[in-house]
Design a protein around this nucleic acid. Structure first.
Length: 882
RNA sequence: GGGCGAUUAGCUCAGUUGGUUCAGAGCACCUGCCUUACAAGCAGGGGGUCGACGGUUCGAAUCCGCCAUCGCCCACCA
């Protein structure tokens, strides 16, 4: 097959992905080999691929492919998450566009639409992952809301309920008035928000509901809630307000009478020292209300509008009401002053609506024991975090975990299996049948239609926390006594988890909790936290900014391998990723380099009758060692999850060592054949390099590996054994480096003197240079080497390779004065350096305290420096005499 | 308000237990080359007071203190 001069990714990628699928290379079944398991962080079922996914899944795929080539039974389980709020809001929006509201059509009908939406848009992202080359075991694809996994969620709920860790309670929750659901504390984002501090005058009541001329002033940011006030509170130690004891005050505008109470909660030096207490609409006020037995009056409805209880401004949105009431207060003479004020306000992570603290009945899961156990998992190192510093974040959260609000006022999700009897009692059972039976124990003649299931569904994370277990054995969660099936027993615990730090609490922590609870051990050994993908000037990628490229376009333009390289190049562990298309271009250039190196190698004609050149022999000796050295480095990087470093090590091995040095050293003259031994070695190294880089660049490596020889159907580089480290003599590496430096020296002189590479030069080297690499110097430097004891008096330029003196003979091209100046400069530097070293050695405290090796090194520096000085001086002398 | 992290070349980052000639890499940049694998390339080159100040030490990019700037997480002063 003739190879094009440029690599064309588009032509080969689909072909090989189809081949891999056809042969089920990604599929894993339990066997006698050591498992290596990753569960995908399930993307939203209706989501589409963005750069964050590209980063995450590239890393996952690199790890999985690397493990596979190291003989592990690698299994990467893919799947999607039903993403309760996100998906439901998309479906609601779609219906709204059609003029349909979800309340009108009811739960069942709505769910039909939701499933239809899921069927239409779901799983697109999994198709996109195929384009990226991800080697997921597609036969194991899971969905958090598929029947088996939903059952696991319900069983888990029943399990914790029976254990007494799930309870229903009326609590102040974070209410999202747009999504119309409660959200957990973790889904609330606090942002400093510019607002106002309103100072309001409340008149003291005369006892009959009429204002006196005495008043107090409170400060509030939420004047629209005054109608829900239940009291005014002051600090008992605050003498300024003692006169208020036992008094009642009137709420402005509506003139309702409320008491003045005392509580330590109030800060004396904040605001006016008087706090309006609004138990229905503020978390702290609710607490105060509980302590003082205050009535709770709700005046804001689920949509964030004032209701009948408010008496005034009924039906107005809370923010509109705020503006209007300020005006009304001003007109009524109750507004003392308005200050600018910045305070943290909670926003819904999902809808960005301002969270309304709201009293409502919700389901909670107790966190104390779960959190304590899960903290121990990480503290003991059974699960490691990379980078390690996330352990601190994790610990802080675990030590302060509040009970988890797990109910959501949505329909898309697993419905809470609580069934209410007409008398208000409820039973919790996994199925309606079991619920009926349980209900009959309470109320013997109850019928199925008398039971009413709870309207709420469970938080999405209440299903995804089971992921590492339920994808293998959905019967396990909720049944810790159940014997794990074959898959779960084999694949659990999984090996590594790659995810973003933004879901450390939502997901990672909770998977550890569930893992410990149901399996009695950690769900994964390592958690690698990636950074957030930002654009090149540091902004988060977002749709509104339009700074997020479409990964599929990039794959189309540059190829999946290039995109993968581009992402990895800039992804040092734990740091945010500054995405720049230039890095993907670099990846594409690397593909092309690999491609062309293969074109060269493949173009060699072999002659079995000719002997290996000394330069080729030296290059092979060296590259053999270099390969082993690099493989060892790469493996070390992988162990430490330094994937971009591993990539860079291979990149340099391929480009600099193999292409720039090795291939040039063994390359025969144009049109000439190469000997058999060299050819075989060269192809062998090429294959080793392909295997080494395959986890990062799966497509081009498969393409070339298949092309190298006639592979049988069913063969793949995916399962080729990774190159192993062989023992090597470090001196081989050092000697070749000397040769490289000698060549570089010659090239430098050529550049300086404008001498064409084609022109062969004479290079004199003083004795002691390793002889076996001299042929490499001759070939690569295009020089004729002569080993001499003395350079004699001919014209030329001298230079040093470490301690070896070299001299390029040049006649007519040397400007003696210039050379002298250069040598004198070098000499001065060297003398200064020597003085420094000697100063150190003369320092008694240094000699007394420093380790022997360090002192020894200083002595070596001294000796080397002396020899260089000697050489420079003799060169100078020769020049001056010429 | 509390905690964590970062600050090294124009950019993105390495730099392990303080000590090899340690101040590095990739990209970008500059100069010269279309040398028959590759111009997505080849050869050469310039560029940093390691954020500031102080301290420990024979020796500090590295350890300690303080400050500055940036980022992230947590947080109920209305």
């Amino acid at each position: 097959m003739e190879l094009a001069a440029k690599y064309n990714a588009a032509e080969v990628e689909d072909k090989w992905y189809a081949y891999w699928l056809e042969h089920k290379f990604f599929h894993s079944e339990p066997n006698e080999k050591e498992p290596y398991t990753i569960v995908i962080p399930p993307p939203n079922v209706t989501g589409i691929l963005h750069m964050g996914h590209v980063l995450n899944n590239t890393l996952n795929d690199v790890l999985i492919r690397n493990a596979r080539m190291h003989g592990k039974n690698a299994c990467w389980v893919p799947g999607t998450d039903h993403a309760s709020i996100a998906t439901e809001s998309k479906v609601v929006a779609k219906l709204k566009a059609e003029g349909i509201s979800k309340e009108d059509i009811g739960r069942e009908e709505f769910l039909k639409h939701a499933w239809a939406w899921k069927e239409e848009h779901g799983g697109i992202i999994l198709q996109q992952l195929r384009k990226l080359g991800c080697s997921c075991d597609w036969d194991r694809t899971r969905f958090t809301m598929e029947p088996a996994l939903s059952e696991a969620v319900i069983n888990t709920f029943v399990y914790f309920y029976r254990k007494g860790w799930i309870y229903k309670g009326v609590r102040m929750v974070n209410w999202d008035p747009e999504a119309l659901t409660a959200v957990s504390d973790d889904e609330v984002v606090h942002k400093d928000t510019q607002s106002h501090f309103y100072h309001l005058r409340y008149y003291i009541s005369d006892g009959n509901g009429q204002p006196t001329d005495k008043f107090l002033v409170i400060a509030t940011t939420r004047p629209e809630t005054i109608m829900a006030d239940a009291a005014i509170c002051v600090n008992p130690k605050d003498e300024r307000h003692h006169w208020l004891r036992g008094k009642k005050v009137l709420i402005p505008l509506i003139n309702r009478e409320i008491p003045v109470i005392e509580d330590d909660y109030v800060e004396m030096d904040f605001g006016t020292g008087c706090l309006k207490v609004t138990p229905a609409h503020d978390v702290h006020d609710y607490e105060i209300g509980l302590r003082h037995n205050l009535p709770v009056l709700e005046i804001i409805d689920d949509h964030g509008k004032l209701n009948e209880n408010a008496q005034i401004l009924v039906g107005e949105d809370r923010f509109v009401a705020r503006k209007k009431i300020v005006k009304m207060l001003e007109e009524a003479g109750n507004l003392v002053k308005v200050e600018d004020y910045t305070s943290p306000v909670g926003y819904s992570e999902r809808t960005n609506a301002v969270i309304e603290p709201k009293l409502s009945a919700q389901w909670f899961l107790k966190m104390d024991t779960l959190a304590k156990v899960a903290l121990e998992t990480v503290d003991s190192g059974r699960t490691k975090f990379i980078p390690e510093r996330y352990v601190n974040t994790y610990r802080h959260w675990m030590e302060n975990a509040h009970d988890w609000c797990i109910s959501r006022q949505l329909w898309w999700g697993q419905r809470i299996p609580a069934y209410y009897l007409p008398n208000g009692q409820f039973v919790v059972e996994a199925t309606p049948e079991a619920a009926l039976e349980a209900a009959r124990a309470i109320c013997p003649d109850i019928k199925a239609e008398d039971l009413h299931q709870d309207e709420d569904v469970l938080d999405t994370w209440f299903s995804s926390w089971l992921w590492p277990i339920s994808v293998f054995d959905p019967d396990m969660p909720g049944h810790p006594d159940h014997k794990p099936n074959k898959d779960l027993a084999y694949y659990y615990p999984t090996s590594d988890l790659v995810t973003g730090p933004d879901i450390i609490f939502f997901w990672v922590a909770r998977m550890i909790m569930a893992g410990e609870e149901f399996m009695g051990r950690e769900p994964f050994s390592n958690v690698y936290f990636t950074g957030i993908v930002r654009d090149k000037i540091g902004r988060k990628m977002s749709k509104t900014l339009g700074n997020s490229p479409n990964p599929l376009d990039l794959i189309g333009t540059y190829g999946a391998d290039a995109v993968r390289i581009g992402m990895l190049l800039c992804s040092s562990a734990g740091n945010d990723i500054f995405y720049d298309e230039a890095q993907i271009k670099q990846g594409a250039a690397f593909c092309n380099k690999i491609w062309n190196s293969y074109r060269l190698v493949k173009g060699f004609s072999v002659d079995d009758s000719i002997a290996q050149t000394p330069a080729a022999a030296a290059a092979i000796r060296w590259f053999d060692a270099k390969l082993s050295e690099t493989v060892a480095t790469v493996e070390d990087h992988y162990r430490k999850f330094r994937i971009s470093d591993a990539l860079m090590a291979i990149y340099k091995l391929f480009w600099d060592d193999y292409c720039a040095w090795y291939l040039e050293a063994i390359k025969p003259a144009f049109g000439q054949p190469v000997d058999r031994a060299t050819y075989d070695a060269t192809l062998g190294y090429f294959e080793a390099l392909l295997k080494l880089i395959h986890p990062v660049m799966p497509f081009i490596t498969e393409e070339l590996w298949q092309n190298m020889e006639d592979r049988k159907e069913g063969e793949t580089i995916m399962y080729a054994a990774a190159p192993v480290v062989k023992p090597f003599d470090p001196e081989t590496l050092v000697n070749f480096e000397l040769a490289e430096e000698a060549v570089n020296g010659v090239r430098g002189i050529r550049n300086q003197k404008n001498i064409a590479p084609k022109e062969t030069l004479d290079l004199k080297i003083k004795g002691g240079f390793p002889a076996d690499v001299l042929p490499v110097v001759e070939k690569m430097g295009n020089v004729k080497v002569e080993t001499v004891a003395d350079f004699g008096s001919g014209q030329g330029v001298g230079f040093m390779v470490r301690t070896h003196e070299m001299f390029v003979a040049l006649s007519g091209l040397v400007n003696v004065a210039e050379e002298i100046a250069k040598l004198e400069k070098d000499l001065a530097y060297q003398q200064k350096f020597l003085a420094g070293v000697r100063g150190k050695l003369a320092n008694e405290r240094f000699v007394a305290n420093a380790p022997a090796a360090v002192i020894e090194n200083e002595r070596k520096k001294e000796a080397d420096s002396l020899s260089k000085i000697e050489s420079l001086e003799s060169q100078l002398k020769a020049l001056k005499n010429s």
